[in-house]
Structures are given as structure tokens and as C-alpha cells.
Design a binder for these strands. Structure first.
Lengths: 218, 218
DNA sequence: ATAAAAATTTAGACGAGTCTAAAGAAATAA
DNA sequence: TTATTTCTTTAGACTCGTCTAAATTTTTAT
């Protein structure tokens, strides 16, 4: 039996490895879930015993196959619930994260499958993030982060890679949603900030914002 | 902040007082949530400190106003989720209890209100049990338990007062659902068992089954 | 190459919620 | 009304997940 705390650690390790493609460090995990490094060390020992991670003291940690499957299934649940909240209950995309963080821990395979079916087997959640299938397959897109685009390229927003209210509220303010047409006008080399055109209005955004916007070209 | 365990204790006290109209005893609570009397004693002390119950050592316990409101809101959530599971996700009524027991602890007032709205503000759940409103009002019916009916009375099943898979599966087997027409043919004084007619078929059921069936006459 | 800094682990403690065993209070029966 | 049974509470211990402080290992900088 896996506990709620354990699930959150697996998710944190998953999220870190996703971004860095490296082993997750104790401190990175502590940051991710806002706890002390000591607590993380403790928990890693326990997860190691349960064979959910591959861990060597002082050397960082990665998920085992078992742990990876579990993490994927939690992400699947999180994204399905977010889709439910936005598509069926009319939440807006900045409001759903905290509730989905609770719902993702509900234990019932049948519930997840029926929810999936009820939602019409969505491939992407309201933020454009891929929803892993029942078998753990993760849908792909050829979208790339806005800050990696070449100047004068046009595209369309396919997703965001940060699920934080303040970020999503800012996007809404900028008139940026999934599907919005966007053109990269200029990259400022001084601070990597970007001038963009959204629906015939010019805007200026930081690199920090741009790197969390996934764009599909043309 | 109220914990999951505390919520379950409040619910247990609520359920016991509902049936007996008396203060709940330590042992009754221990039975209800399958724990030891010692654990219950411990928890009652804590709930007392939080002013969620009115408790005198050795004298039993009842909910305070605050505790009562909380318990009602948990019941509201439980029954809304059961309604969602049956009406939207096509679970059958015997399968929903355990999942709803998890979902009822999700913390988000907005979620509950939006779910209520999405379901069309239902007054009764799939078992015919009343769903408390946002203000804590509990819809009433004039239905009475089948075992209290007079012989030769006809009526319709308006609800069941036990949410256990084995019971609900048995009802399904007997062709009894919400809305089913029923006639009480005979009460056996030896064991209080009952002969009934359901959809032109005669059946024989125990008093234990009958007392959990709510019937509206005529 | 070694000293300093940073990262990580260990040690010891705590609160929540549970348990068993034992003590104490209340109810019941002779 | 006293003895016995039943119910309830207290005492002490355990696990889980957390913490701070201290010890240890690794990395970085001089």
C-alpha cells in the first residue's frame, strides 16, 4: 500500500527528472515539495525499501519501473481531474490545480477509467499537457517552447508547462489561451525577453514566461 | 484545520445519533468505524478541545452545533459524489460507497457547489437519501420503512437507508430499485419476515431487509 | 591539493492516530 | 446491597511523516 506522502514524493521525482533528464537531488526534491532535506533523506530510504526508486546515498535518485508507472498514473489522474473541472464544472484553468492535487490521490482504477470515458478520452488537459493513457503512453506534440522559436515565426499556443495560478492569470490577462495565434517579433539579447504579437496586439514578455509556452509552428 | 480522521469521527457520531436519537457511546463509535474503544476515548478528548462535540466522560457524546454543521457538510459531499458516480459515470448503486468515502474529504467549497449545480441540484442521492443543501437543510419525505407498513398496503420504494454493497446487490437481485412498486402481503409474526409483491412476483424478505426500505404509500 | 562551502545523511524529538493491557466507573444481577 | 459483568478511560508503546541540530560526504574554489 502506498501512502499519500509517498505518492507526492514519486510525483516530485518524476517532475524533476522530466525537466532535467537527470537524477533528482535531495535538495531539489525538498524544494519541490517544500520540506526539509532531512525528511527527504528519510523518505528516500523508505521508497528504496519498497523498490519504487533507484537510490544511492549522496548520488541522487531516479524512479524504478514500478515507481515510474505509479507516478505516471498519478499524473494521469491529475490531468483527467483538471479536464473534468474545466470542461464539466466550468472552473477556469488557474483554479484547478489545488483541487486536482487532492483528487489525484483517490484510489479507484474503475473511477479513473470511467472518468476518462466520460470526458471522451482527452489527449491533453486544459493546459495542453498530455494525459497519459491507461497503458502509460504519453501523447506527444511537435510544439516547442516560445523562447526557442526563431524571430519572425508564427505559430499557435498548444500548451503551457507551468500550472500556477499567478502564471495562468497573467496569460489570461495577456489574452493568451490554448489555440491563440502568436508571432515572435524580436528577442532582446540583453535579458532574453521577447516581443510578440497576439491577436494583432504587440506585447512584451519575459523569457521566464516564454519558456513555459509551447508553440506549434504555422 | 480538521483532519480526515476527525471528519470520520464526526460522521460516525452523526450516523449513530440519527438512528438512536440518543448520545453516542464510546463503544458504538468504535463499532461504527472499526477501531478500539481506547482510540475513540482519545479522539473524543481532542474533538472536545476543538468544541466539535459535547462530551462528558462516561456519559456519551453528541455533536456541537459546529460539529453538526461539519458532519452535515460531509454527508452532503458524500451524497453529491454518489449521485455523480451513478448519474454521470454509470456506476451502479452498490459500487459507489467506497469511492464516495474518499471523495467526501476533498476540501473545496467551490467544487461542491459546482458539482451540485452540474448535477442539477438533486434532492436525493441514488439510494433515495436526502442530500443536505448548502445551508444544511435536509429534504424530507413522508416515506416509512417497509416493516412498519400495514398488511395489504401498496406503495413505491423511495429510498434505502443502508449503503452496503451486499445489501444493494441483493435488492438488485430482487428487482428492487428506487421507484419500484411494492405491496406488503403478509407479516410473519414468528420472525417478522415479510411476504411482498414486486412487479407481479411474490417474494419473501427478512425484517432486516425491510427496515432499510423506505416506502411511500399509494 | 587542501580548505571552505554546499549538499546530504544521521540522530533525536515531536504530533497524530493507532494499539494492547490495565485500571476505574457504571450498570446489572443475585 | 453487594458482587459481577460491562463499558470507558488511562498508561505506555508503536508507526508515519515531519522537524532541528549535528555529523558526514561531496563539490568548489583558492
Amino acid at each position: 500500500m502506498i501512502t499519500l506522502a509517498e505518492e507526492n514524493y514519486l510525483k516530485a521525482i518524476w517532475a524533476i527528472s522530466l525537466n532535467t533528464n537527470e537524477k533528482a537531488s535531495t535538495n531539489a526534491i525538498a524544494d519541490e515539495i517544500s520540506t526539509s532535506a532531512a525528511s527527504v533523506s528519510d523518505m528516500l530510504r523508505k521508497l528504496q525499501e519498497k523498490e519504487l526508486i533507484k537510490y544511492e546515498k549522496y548520488k541522487g535518485v531516479e524512479l524504478s519501473e514500478k515507481g515510474g508507472n505509479l507516478a505516471t498514473s498519478i499524473i494521469r489522474k491529475h490531468r483527467l481531474w483538471e479536464t473534468f473541472l474545466v470542461n464539466k464544472l466550468a472552473f477556469n484553468w488557474g483554479e484547478v490545480h489545488d483541487v486536482a492535487e487532492q483528487l489525484e490521490h483517490i484510489k479507484s482504477d474503475e473511477l479513473v477509467d470511467k472518468l476518462d470515458s466520460f470526458l471522451g478520452f482527452p489527449k491533453f488537459d486544459p493546459h495542453g499537457e498530455p494525459i497519459p493513457t491507461k497503458d502509460g503512453e504519453i501523447p506527444t506534440t511537435n510544439a516547442i517552447p516560445l523562447n526557442e522559436l526563431q524571430t519572425a515565426t508564427k505559430g499557435r499556443v498548444m500548451g503551457v508547462t507551468l500550472d500556477e495560478k499567478s502564471f495562468l492569470d497573467y496569460l489570461t490577462q495577456l489574452n493568451i489561451r490554448i489555440g491563440t495565434k502568436i508571432e515572435l517579433l524580436e528577442k532582446i539579447s540583453f535579458d532574453q525577453s521577447l516581443s510578440i504579437n497576439i491577436e494583432n496586439t504587440n506585447q512584451h514578455i519575459s523569457n521566464d514566461v516564454a519558456k513555459h509556452l509551447l508553440i506549434k509552428i504555422k
